[in-house]
Design a protein around this nucleic acid. Sequence first.
DNA 1: ATCGGCTCGCGCAA
DNA 2: TGCGCGAAGCCGAT
Length: 499
Amino acid sequence: MPLLDSSKRRRARTRGTTPQAGPDAPVLYWMSRDQRIDDNWALLRACDVAEAHGAPVVIVCNVRATCLGAGARQCGFMLRGLRELERNAAARNVGFALTRGDDPATAIDAFAKKIGSKTIVCDFSPLRDELRWRKEFAALCDARSAHFEECDAHNVVPCWEASDKLEVGARTLRGRLAKRYPEFLREFPEMPTVSAAYRGPAIEEVKWDAVLAEALERGAAVPEVTWAVPGETAARAVLDDFVNNRMRLYEKRNDPSKPRALSGLSPWLHFGQISGQRCALEAKKAVGKASPPAYDAFFEELVVRRELSDNFCYYSPQYDRIEGQKYDWAKDTLREHAADKRPYVYTLEELERAKTHDDLWNASQRELRYGGKMHGFCRMYWAKKILEWTESPEQALEFAIYLNDTYSLDGRDPSGYVGCMWSIVGVHDQGWKEREIFGKIRYMTYESTKKKFSIPDYVARVNALVKAAKSGETSRVANPGLFAIDIAGAKKRKAEAMG
DNA sequence: ATCGGCTCGCGCAA
DNA sequence: TGCGCGAAGCCGAT
């Protein structure tokens, strides 16, 4: 029986009983946030338990009929990624099923009972719906004495291990994370081929074309983008291109006219099609091809700030509301300036259609709407200006989150909520010199961005992107990052690596 | 171009 | 209890 090392045990939180599995009692992995086969601690845990008991492994993913109202852009990306994942699972002798319940806990429980599974592993998310479903599912497991484990496969240091409280900012979490890197920031074990094949009741075949067609039709208002190729293989190709060819540019990351300086990995990271820990490990190996400062800056954003977002959402359940800000200075200052005269007041529709007086803001919104992604620096400026140009901080937050969740491939992510809360409500920030509307919340100006980079260059890049998106071209012009994604090459390298 | 003050809470020394 | 530190910026003084 393979022994679990201590870090693997702490990645999982267990409910009560000990695992029960066998040739006719598969170990079930309820996959939601981490949609990949490689470098997935939750799947590795399921495989460990299964091997110890001679049991098969089955992955189940629940897709609700409404997809939480997500557009074709996000649903298409996810479902196409899952279609690839099903094939990769089969290659490791792992089964795959899709359930379609509006109540995930009930749907997964029914599926587990159907295949005779009494040990279920799931992954972790700090978002409220995800937490509620896992809690409901845990109660269903208790009721039938099934074993349930929750494994943080998304963070380098599991969210509940990194800190047991809401952190004030990056500087307090950074040290706590660093202390745990020797334990957690290690190479992954290879994903094994599971010995026991699933031979229980037949699992319904996924009709991918039909599932995709339905999602694309329902979400047609926000069409798919062509530049981002979904799936684990494409994700790895983007990572390899970044660390080998582009990480050396990372110190230029705050210049939106130079998109190649960014990793561009956020869509794949959001759906868990690549592991953040894998990105960190590969970046470290390639530090010589870039520079220590570039690597440090990338690591800070990839690990520290991303895991800080999980910490915030997990310990601040009102993570998408003004009340989610713990500190009074920020809430008080916004209230004190609530009646200040706004220089412009735009409706949601005017914002959505990028009809403001500001060419930098409009370009940012158009990049989001037509490209499904916004440059990191622009995200800050964009959200700060929504605070400045709407009736109230509450409305600003609502509009910013709506636009991000609707149009961004990485919408509905803790990082997105925290980004909006940082910009508008001062979360993880401190007070600054008091001024109109913003009070002590950090301010950003058009004038100073003009000194930092060429706004016309950025606007021109976005115009090209929008033109390509509207004409349905799959050209590299439509690719905000101009990534040369070498899918065939990535597949070949993977095949070679697997022998 | 560069620097310091702005403002705040935490962490640590005393 | 008090002081140093940071934080993806701004602004005015040098």
